[in-house]
């Protein structure tokens, strides 16, 4: 995929109207980005093994990596693996997400790492420098924190970062070139 021509790459990229995707972000492969999602410069999204679908209102910060990676022993799978990322998730700087499915309102803090066999449900917080490498489905509202990766269940969900999202959507276009949206908004205005 990495060798493919830029024209080809652009055609695989579907950006919904209202998303803020900086020109300097690294996007490879078949990627769909929902409305109101902010992708910072130097964030990288690599759809290696199959398409990546990113929902609405996500913040993907610089150096954050979202990879749809092939399983290590399979070189070329016949059925492309789909990676789905829900709504209002925050990928903080330098985190790596390979999870096959990410729900809503999750936060991956700085340098967090989630491997491909993990499924994040809703409202989970993967703390700074914590890594999840064993296959599992993380229950809702789980917090992983500290150097020992302690876990705790949170009573209330992390609030969606609406304020931060609105600020970024206002500020980023004034200082960065953006990739153009190429699909119309089809979601209902309620979300």
């Amino acid at each position: 995929m990495s060798i493919s021509a830029p024209v080809n790459r652009r055609s695989n990229l579907k950006i919904a109207a209202g998303a803020v995707v900086c020109e300097e972000s690294i996007l490879k492969g078949d990627i769909t980005i929902g409305a109101r999602t902010v992708i910072h410069p130097k964030a990288s999204i690599v759809a290696e093994a199959g398409p990546i679908i990113i929902g609405e209102g996500n913040i993907i910060e610089e150096m954050a990596t979202i990879v749809n990676r092939l399983p290590p022993n399979i070189v070329d799978s016949a059925t492309p693996a789909l990676q789905i990322i829900g709504n209002y998730n925050v990928f903080e700087a330098d985190c790596t997400c390979e999870a096959s499915k990410v729900g809503d309102n999750n936060i991956l803090e700085n340098k967090a790492f989630v491997t491909r066999d993990v499924e994040l449900t809703n409202g989970c917080v993967i703390g700074a420098a914590c890594s999840l490498i064993e296959p599992e489905i993380v229950p809702e509202n789980t917090i992983v924190f500290g150097s020992q990766c302690h876990r705790r269940e949170m009573n209330d969900k992390p609030y969606p970062q609406i304020g931060q999202l609105e600020y970024l959507m206002r500020v980023l276009p004034s200082y960065h070139h953006l990739r153009k949206a190429n699909i119309k908004v089809k979601s209902d205005p309620a979300t």
């Binding site: 703390g127 705790r152 209330d156």
Partner: peptide
Amino acid sequence: SLCRWTSRD
């Protein structure tokens, strides 16, 4: 700020 524990919890 580390483990997001709050007094509301």
